[in-house]
């Protein structure tokens, strides 16, 4: 079975290529985007690149059925990332080949005709080990951008986009951030009393050269931070070298988005908060004292 990597106008598929490489199957990247994108998609680990042409002013999702037709011709294992267009591609392809969709993938092993996958279920409260026969669709964190340099043949195929036309694009007032690829992150939660106090957290993040993330209530509901800062099961999945959690209780919905962090520090005034179970270093106390102290200590050193 081939492994398909779906590229939806974004080169951030390094993680998918990495995964696919471990399986020893031919890897085909199906690309919707500019010609340059096909060049970077032709990276080590990709054997074939199929280009469906420049989207022009069609919405990327307009090509979902054309992508699906390509895979349906020769069904296999399909991988895509978690960005909006990537999800639509994955779902549309899965429908065309009747492939179950698996998210929260922890490990994949191929045995002859079957694939055994260990994956999170119910938003991450448990892990199932499931055996699949036939084509499957996996949603995996896209990872770093690929930069070409491989030997894949790039083939252009015609596409029949559906009627989705882009009529405008208004850049956001604040530049969006991709926490998934940040190497250091400082996260803030409901322990912060007022949005004015974010300055404390920002100072620490600046010292550390870290991105700022948050638990869901701060970006939805309280609206203290933009939505792309929310770390959690349906938000950013971070895997930084260092993640410092400030005033976060450690509920599953948040923690499942940061489990891949190398080192986790938590600052919380509750000695027995859930978050302590997922921390390498635990500081129990008042964040209003500890966070400035930490910023100061970092400045000194």
């Amino acid at each position: 079975m081939k492994t398909y990597i779906l590229v939806a106008n974004d080169p951030g598929v390094g993680g998918l290529v990495e995964q696919a490489a471990t399986w020893g199957q031919p890897v085909v990247a199906v690309v919707v985007g500019s010609k340059d994108l096909t060049q970077v998609a032709a990276c080590p680990g990709v054997d074939e690149v199929i280009w469906l042409g420049d989207p022009g002013n069609h919405g990327i999702e307009a090509f979902a059925s054309s992508v699906a037709a390509i895979v349906a011709d020769d069904p296999g294992v399909v991988l895509a990332g978690r960005r909006p267009s990537e999800r639509v591609f994955l779902g549309t392809v899965a429908a065309s080949i009747m492939a179950p969709i698996i998210t929260g993938v922890q490990s994949v092993s191929f045995n002859n005709e079957t694939v055994v996958i260990k994956h999170g279920i119910y938003g991450g409260i448990a892990v199932a080990t499931t055996q699949f026969e036939g084509p499957i669709a996996m949603q995996i964190d896209g990872g770093a951008p690929v930069v070409g340099g491989g030997t894949a043949v790039i083939e252009t195929r015609s596409a029949t986009p559906t009627t989705i036309t882009v009529t405008s694009l208004t850049p956001p007032e604040v530049a969006s951030v991709d926490l998934d690829t940040a190497s250091r992150v400082v996260g803030v939660g409901r322990g912060l009393k007022r949005s004015e106090d974010l300055g404390l957290v920002e100072a620490l993040a600046t010292r550390l050269n870290a991105e700022i993330g948050c638990s869901r209530p701060l970006s939805e509901g309280l609206d203290w931070l933009p939505r792309d800062r929310y770390i959690g099961v349906s938000g950013a999945h971070i895997a930084p070298d260092l993640y410092i959690m400030i005033g976060i209780s450690g509920q599953l919905q948040h923690v499942s988005g940061c489990r891949a962090s190398k080192v986790i520090v938590s600052i919380n005034n509750d000695k027995d908060a859930l978050v302590t179970q997922d921390s390498d270093y635990i500081l129990t106390g008042d964040l209003y004292a500890l966070v400035p102290a930490l910023s100061a200590a970092l400045e000194k050193s």
């Binding site: 999702e61 979902a64 999800r87 779902g91 549309t92 429908a95 998210t103 949603q139 009627t163 349906s234």
Partner: peptide
Amino acid sequence: DSGSKTLVAVLAGLLGWPCVTD
């Protein structure tokens, strides 16, 4: 219950209709 954000796209694929999210 699964937080997967893919159902709408699978349904779109089965129906053969365009799909947009977010």
